[in-house]
Amino acid sequence: MKDTKDKIIAATVFCLNMNENASIDEIANHLGINRRTIHRYFKDRNNLLQCCLSKMMSKCNRAMADAYESSADPIEQVEAMFDAALSIGIEYSFVKKIFKRSNYGQVLKSESLDYESVNQKWCRLITGLQHSGVINNLLPISWVYNLFGGIVDIAIQAETSGDVAINEIRNLSWDSFKGSIGMINK
């Protein structure tokens, strides 16, 4: 049962990345099942979208937490967290289109708590780097946070549009973020 639900969510992510207006019928056709099978697991399209968002947030939280734990060096931690956000953002690019860059605060409470924990770790990293002079300390943390998300969004747009070579997007976006916050390697 869980396997079928996960396959439906994965197919939905695929279909919505191709066309954010994809219908339940299109998703069912992609899977080679009928619409009723999807409705056994999801009440309606909105419920399916919420499950996709929840899955994305859960996956993002795990990836960001793993990135944070990947190094003891704060610069490497921020870079790994940026890479995680970029990777998940590209995989779930339809979410930004459908949810119009909401704060994702409406996600399940347990996942929101995980999100807050990851967010708090990220904020502590940035604050620590500001105190040590690696990042411009005149920039409010909220500004740096929005730059981080905004540059990830721009990278996703560049990847989706094909305007920038895919193998250049990661470095261009990371260099843009570092430059925008005045990050220097010590």
Rank of each mutant, 00 (worst) to 15 (best):
D3N: 14
K5I: 06
D6W: 01
I8W: 07
A10D: 14
A10H: 04
A10R: 04
V13D: 04
F14T: 13
C15L: 10
L16A: 02
L16H: 02
L16P: 01
E20C: 04
E20P: 06
E20R: 04
A22M: 08
A22S: 15
I24P: 04
E26F: 07
I27Q: 09
A28D: 05
L31D: 06
N34D: 15
R35W: 07
R40M: 13
F42L: 06
K43V: 11
K43T: 14
R45E: 08
R45M: 10
N46I: 14
L49Y: 15
Q50T: 11
C51A: 15
C51R: 12
C51V: 05
C52Q: 09
L53E: 05
L53T: 10
K55G: 01
M56Y: 12
M56S: 08
N61K: 00
N61Q: 01
R62T: 13
D66F: 04
S71H: 10
I75F: 00
Q77A: 09
Q77D: 06
V78D: 03
A80V: 06
A80I: 05
A85Y: 11
L86A: 11
I88D: 03
G89K: 07
G89C: 05
I90C: 05
S93K: 11
F94T: 03
K96A: 15
K97T: 07
F99M: 08
F99C: 05
R101D: 14
S102E: 03
G105H: 05
Q106H: 15
V107C: 07
L108H: 12
S110R: 10
S112P: 00
L113E: 13
D114F: 08
D114Y: 08
S117T: 11
V118T: 12
N119A: 09
K121R: 15
R124G: 02
R124H: 12
L129S: 05
L129T: 06
L129E: 05
Q130Y: 05
S132Y: 04
G133Q: 06
I135P: 02
N136R: 07
N137K: 13
L138F: 13
L139H: 02
I141D: 00
S142I: 03
S142R: 06
W143L: 14
N146K: 11
L147G: 11
F148W: 12
G149P: 00
G150T: 00
I151G: 00
D153C: 08
I154N: 11
I154F: 14
I156K: 04
I156T: 09
Q157S: 11
A158F: 11
A158K: 12
D163P: 01
V164T: 14
V164Q: 08
A165H: 10
I166L: 09
I166S: 13
I166T: 12
N167T: 11
N167K: 05
E168G: 02
E168P: 01
E168N: 11
I169H: 08
I169K: 08
I169C: 09
L172N: 07
L172K: 09
S173F: 02
W174H: 05
F177E: 01
F177D: 01
S180D: 02
I181Q: 01
I181N: 00
I181A: 02
G182Q: 01
G182F: 00
M183K: 00
I184T: 15
N185E: 14
N185G: 02
K186D: 13
